[in-house]
């Protein structure tokens, strides 16, 4: 990889300052996606701002109607957290199925969301649960946050600090892995809340994570696996690649949704 300056600020304020200080600085959170990208020389930042020393970005707590997870909390901690398992077991399950054990030890929720890889797991949970992303500047609703492939509402120099998840009545995540990378070929997060049912799909959309409205409608009327199975998803905007055609992904979405509905708790 190309060389770069390295900064390890101890506060969010210092991190924001470090980011603003150079032309092409990038944040490194867990680094589990960024490091391979740098190694392949697909990104050549002038500076890396490492958030690992910022204590205020870490930790999981119950808050209000749900839970709040610090941006620098690794997947392994979310997966093992009694707070998460108690409030939203589907979220702990999802965290436990990202990458592999070594990756989960370093990879963080903030990094995953800021990167918004179209095959990442977390965006589906954030979107389906209607979570709120807290940043160094503001709060952003999940529906406004994801804006296409590797694109989010985050502005330059804006840092995710935490994510707040409201507790649903029940929820589940079903991940169908791309066999080589083990990313999601299709991942479906189903959440049933007072406001209705939300179904978010990752891995499949050409524009990244999206809500499957036709499935949400069907499940709002009848929250049952059969209701999900009966829905036909259009393949038009879905990804086609070596590991799955758009039609295959379109087929998998209701299949996985039905499984998630059956598993929801």
């Amino acid at each position: 990889m190309n060389n770069f300056g390295y900064h390890r600020p101890a506060s969010v304020a210092d991190a924001v300052k470090a980011l603003g200080g150079s032309g092409d600085a990038r944040i490194v959170a867990g680094g589990q996606t960024l490091l391979p990208t740098l190694r392949a020389r697909l990104a050549t930042p002038s500076d890396l701002v490492d958030l690992r020393a910022i204590a205020e970005l870490k930790g999981i707590k119950a808050e209000g109607d749900g839970i709040t997870i610090g941006a620098m909390t690794p997947h392994a901690e979310v997966a093992a957290s009694d707070v998460v398992k108690g409030a939203i077991p589907a979220l702990a399950y999802l965290a436990d199925h990202i990458g592999d054990r070594q990756v989960r030890t370093l990879g963080t929720i903030g990094g995953s969301l800021a990167n918004n890889d179209p095959a990442a797991c977390y965006p589906s949970a954030v979107l389906a649960l209607g979570a709120t992303i807290r940043t160094s500047k503001r709060e952003i609703k999940a529906d406004d946050f994801f804006q296409g492939l590797f694109t989010t509402a985050l502005e330059d120099g804006e840092i995710i600090t935490a994510v707040h998840f409201p507790k649903p009545e029940k929820a589940a995540y079903e991940k169908f892995v791309q066999p080589a990378s083990r990313f999601a070929l299709v991942g479906v997060f189903v959440a049933k809340a007072r406001e209705g049912v939300r179904v978010a799909v990752t891995g499949a959309g050409q524009e990244g994570v999206f809500r499957a409205r036709e499935l949400e409608q069907a499940l709002s009327a009848n929250f049952s696996p059969d209701a999900a199975k009966g829905v036909k998803v259009a393949a038009g905007n879905l990804i086609s690649d070596l590991h799955g055609t758009a039609e295959y992904r379109a087929h998998l979405i209701p299949v996985l949704t039905a499984r998630a509905v059956a598993a929801a708790k």
């Binding site: 390295y6 680094g31 490091l35 190694r39 890396l48 392994a76 592999d100 070594q102 990756v103 030890t105």
Partner: peptide
């Protein structure tokens, strides 16, 4: 070089990580 194979696994702070995926 894509942090998949795990041949580089070491323990950092007592936990397994991929040392090719960490500076």
């Amino acid at each position: 070089d894509t942090a998949q194979c795990g041949a580089c696994t070491v323990h950092v702070g007592g936990k397994a990580v991929k040392s090719c995926n960490m500076l």
